[in-house]
Design a protein around this nucleic acid. Sequence first.
DNA 1: CTGTTAGCGCGTTCAC
DNA 2: GTGAACGCGCTAACAG
Lengths: 329, 329
Amino acid sequence: MPGRQGANRVTLREVADHAKVSVATVSRVLAGNYPVAAETRRRVEQSIQALDYVANVHARALAGVAPRTVAFVLPDVRAPAFAHAAQGVEEASAEHGALCLICTTQGDPERERAVFQLLREQRASAVILIGGVIDDAEYRARIIDLAQGSRLVLCGRPPVGQVPAVEYANEAGAHAVTQHLLSAGHQRILFLGGPLSGPATTTVADRLAGYRRALGHPGWTQPAEFTRESGYQQLCARLPEDFTAVFAATDLVAAGARAALRAHGLRVPEDVSLVGYDDLALAEDLNLTTVRVPYEELGRAAVHLALSGGTEHEILETSVVVRGSVAPF
Amino acid sequence: MPGRQGANRVTLREVADHAKVSVATVSRVLAGNYPVAAETRRRVEQSIQALDYVANVHARALAGVAPRTVAFVLPDVRAPAFAHAAQGVEEASAEHGALCLICTTQGDPERERAVFQLLREQRASAVILIGGVIDDAEYRARIIDLAQGSRLVLCGRPPVGQVPAVEYANEAGAHAVTQHLLSAGHQRILFLGGPLSGPATTTVADRLAGYRRALGHPGWTQPAEFTRESGYQQLCARLPEDFTAVFAATDLVAAGARAALRAHGLRVPEDVSLVGYDDLALAEDLNLTTVRVPYEELGRAAVHLALSGGTEHEILETSVVVRGSVAPF
DNA sequence: CTGTTAGCGCGTTCAC
DNA sequence: GTGAACGCGCTAACAG
């Protein structure tokens, strides 16, 4: 192992001195984009090794050679769906030789602003935004505003003005599972999910829209937050009633719904059929028929879009994963 | 909204000109650590607004004011345990006003090296490392090597040489659940988990050690990777046998074990008791008695340790969470 | 209180 | 092929 310098403050200058050449020469062998005598190059490389020289990105960036950096901004890494998207972003960034920053905001617009400020200071090449949102005028204005600073790409949300986005076929997926339920003979299907009060996020709104389009009428809905707990309580509040199937807006909600059904002595799928959305790992545990959302692909696509500079509106496909939570009625 | 500049290349100089002051003055109102006439400050602030000026971290860093950056290096963000730790790291970093970088390595030492190189170039204030490892000489050498570049803190692993670490009472937790099983009258307890071949990671090794210490003898073990699938298959391979309880090395493994038990017509806990480790969300779904590991705290503690520059070896507590998967025997 | 100026570490013309 | 010198945007003395 070469002699290490601890705090590692070795500069180009020192390497140059050590190798008895000028800084320009060292810079050249480092960049490798300019002819350097073999012997000289060897000597320089040795010095670099010996001193354990590590280039300083800051100096480099200032001199015009900025490393690519893509930032992924999300409410919370612990949410499986977001974690999967993050994985996709990470992988795609690495493939592009870009460093990946992951920043969480806890859904707080204030923190989101702070994070963006930080990212602008960092001169991030691109920032990708994910997380449920209510698509109102205030929100759209905020996005337009944020987009000024750096290249912005929306993920799992509709595009806003000139700000590009990569989405998944959310409404279509909801339509498909509902259709699946309908084909099995179900007629009274309860949609479980949505805000307990106030406007819905685009995510729920689209799923609800797909459900309604398949049904051909407004159907029946029971609000519930995107948590297991809420799914449990909100369905209990609705039980007993005469629906034969439940469409939970999320796998997590479905997990809660399933528990609620059981608590009321109802079996899945014998007594009540149940479907979810997202296809998280727990859907398999629960043997839950659900809609698969390609979260990792979503992240990857966002990175490509961000780095390619495109402005198209990409929409990834969703598909229903049939397991054992639906029985014919 | 102020007039935005798109690519945002406004410099201090321009702001100074706009406000008819010197760059030093602008720098001062920005830093706020030096007296500036109220009127002047107001004018400068207006110019900053008008031009939508955003400081350049790189220039700043080069001039000596480096922003704190803590990097969290992990195998995979999708693993719930790691995601929770990441959340802790993120929050603690934010509290310290530090930017948080999250980098994944897929457990590939090569990628790990590349990431470290990148982080050194970034002049990261600290890097925190998490993920299962086999504690051999090669590994220890690698850590020592990596630690040269920047401030390193190990997370959920034992310290190596001068490299500090924050762990959780892994062995003690395993001892405690085993004791819990013993108290319920169980004697033949199977430990499910561990490498199918080769040496174990410190994580399993410690859990196994706790199990054995409680038992007072080597006990019975069946290898299994840390996945639901492996838990299922490896337990099936062992069934039927006459143990009355299973200690799964991980909640995920426990989920698989539970499915295997069911597939063989065995009920939990009536026929066989089952415990896991980690206390992930799914443990609650499964009504699984398990050991709670404070992953978020682990992440937070690592950040504090990293930023405080301490070198202590911190060990967080674990506790057994009693749910309904254990019955007296 | 405010302006001038010298670096921070590196890439990049230019001359040699 | 190689070296000297300027500038990237900003902070921190140092003078006024």
